[in-house]
């Protein structure tokens, strides 16, 4: 554990909590892509199956359980509890265009051709593109509430901190997880355009982020 990894995990947790509380308090999931949240729930489910097979640390186990619970609770709020506020017509990204290539790639490019390893690889590849329905939705409607942009900012910051964590681990432990690093770089690139808009529009102005 290093400071980049810990801060990264905390940003990830903050992002998920921001989103959950936003929906819970406003009793609305307007502007939120339910598809992205289902994909993240699928990411955590397929990655954390090792909860049943290996123990790493109390921290690791607790964080995994918290992420899983919050991911499913968010999906529950969007699709069941506050379903009437869900903008399904704007959330029109075709997730099969992500799931099929990601599933195919995880069979082709993995560390070991074993069920748990393939599912872990699938979760890594899927996480790198899971935010696309949300970014697509913002591009389509041309705006996002500032709280939604704070959620995306912390999610992007988590990714950027994980890159720093890998640089650190490479130099201190000789750690290099090729699949995670390549996917992580791809994922972080998706946030660059958003980061630019966040700093130039959201933090300087107030209220919603509108696209030019």
């Amino acid at each position: 554990m290093n400071i980049f990894r810990l801060l990264g995990d905390m940003c990830h947790l903050v992002a998920i909590i921001i989103l959950f509380l936003k929906i819970w308090r406003s009793k609305s999931c307007a502007g939120i892509s339910g598809k992205s949240q289902v994909l993240f729930a699928l990411v955590f489910t397929t990655r954390y199956l090792d909860l049943f097979t290996s123990f790493i640390s109390v921290y690791n186990t607790v964080m995994k359980v918290v992420f899983l619970v919050l991911a499913y609770a968010t999906v529950y709020l969007i699709y069941l509890r506050f379903r009437s506020t869900y903008n399904s017509e704007s959330d029109s990204f075709r997730v099969e265009f992500l799931l099929v290539p990601v599933a195919g790639l995880s069979f082709l490019e993995n560390y070991a051709f074993a069920p748990l390893e393939i599912l872990w690889t699938f979760s890594i590849y899927l996480e790198s593109v899971a935010i696309l329905p949300q970014l697509f939705m913002i591009t389509k409607t041309g705006e996002a509430e500032s709280i939604t942009t704070h959620y995306l900012f912390f999610l992007g910051l988590y990714r950027a901190l994980y890159l720093a964590n890998w640089v650190w681990r490479y130099h201190t432990e000789g750690f290099f997880d090729q699949i995670a690093v390549v996917s992580g770089v791809v994922q972080t690139i998706f946030y660059c355009d958003f980061f630019y808009l966040y700093f130039t529009k959201v933090l300087r102005g107030s209220g919603k982020m509108t696209l030019p």
Binding site: H12, D50, N60, M63, Y111, A112, E173, G174
Partner: peptide, 10 residues
């Protein structure tokens, strides 16, 4: 020594 199959990150 680090084992690639451990997946110790979240």
């Amino acid at each position: 020594e680090y084992n690639i199959y451990d997946h110790d990150e979240l």
